[in-house]
Amino acid sequence: MFILFGMPIVQILIFGFALTNEVKDSRIAILDESKDEASEAIIHRLESSLYFDIEKNITQPQLVDAFREGTIKLAVVFPQKFSEQLEHTNAASIQLIADATDPNVATTLVNYASAIIYDSQNDLKGFKELPFKINTEMRMLYNPQMKGSYNFVPGVMAMVLMLVCAMMTSISIVKEKEMGTMEIILVSPIVPMRVIIAKMVPYFILSAVNIASILLLSVFVLDVPIHGSLLFLISECLLFTLTVLALGLFISTISGSQQVAMLISLMGLFLPTIMFSGFMFPIENMPVPLQVISNVVPAKWFYYIVKNVMIKGLGFQFVWKETLVLSGMMLFLMAVSIKKFKVRLE
């Protein structure tokens, strides 16, 4: 009953308010190498915009790191002697560097920024008589061709593993409860740990095959490169697989029938994976409560890791925190479900 009446309300609220493709308050950095009248005027314009949350006084090496860590999505770079150039040649250019691992966000940000810069030309009228021109040069980091597949390959990977591992594992255990075969296993002297491992192994292998086929397809058919270490990427995938297997196990211990297990998997795993992993809707734009919720979705961490390792080519030192979170989740879920796995029927 709750599901029937509650779901539409929850969904309309979540989709209506929280999940927007709009970009608000994005963190951008400004590297101003000229620090003159013209550049300050433009920066002022950018600052007063609602779309951006501006980080000034950044140095070039810091900029590189910020992009890697994903703390900024866009950088506006003013070349040296910006005003002078404007004055003498009636033209100057500003470089816009965007993190294009998510091409939609990158395009939106670049468009916003260009529009603001274009508008601010009016502010500069007094400074210099028309006609003059400020060019914007765009640079799309990590994904120069702006391919959508760069974004969805990691997302699809998270979703497929979630479906195969969590849903199938939980259903396969609950099915035994329903069929009555679980009783027979429980009266036998076999230890619960072995039952659990035996249930996990086939899905683990299945997932490994899925990971391989997704990676092969994305590299050879979709031309999505793997910039980072392949071995590291695969081990992260296997870690995520274990995490969702544990999740599936956990679901099976709390649900009594296949339908319930299926429903919990869909509502509790599939939808949150789509909504909160950051793959459809940028997490930064969600209201704070939803951002907090997104932290418990394993797919969010996995998506972040895969994106960074695969597209940005980063190594362990940049994703160790996320790896740690995933490992923690896995151990916690394993422990809880092994403890909850009932040796007795009640």
Binding site: M179, G180, T181, E183, I184, V187, S188, P189
Partner: peptide
């Protein structure tokens, strides 16, 4: 655990795969 080794059980519901 010792009991489990020494008993056989056939349930009300059909219990083979």
């Amino acid at each position: 655990e010792q009991i489990k080794r020494n008993i056989g059980y056939m349930s009300q519901r059909f219990s083979l795969y």
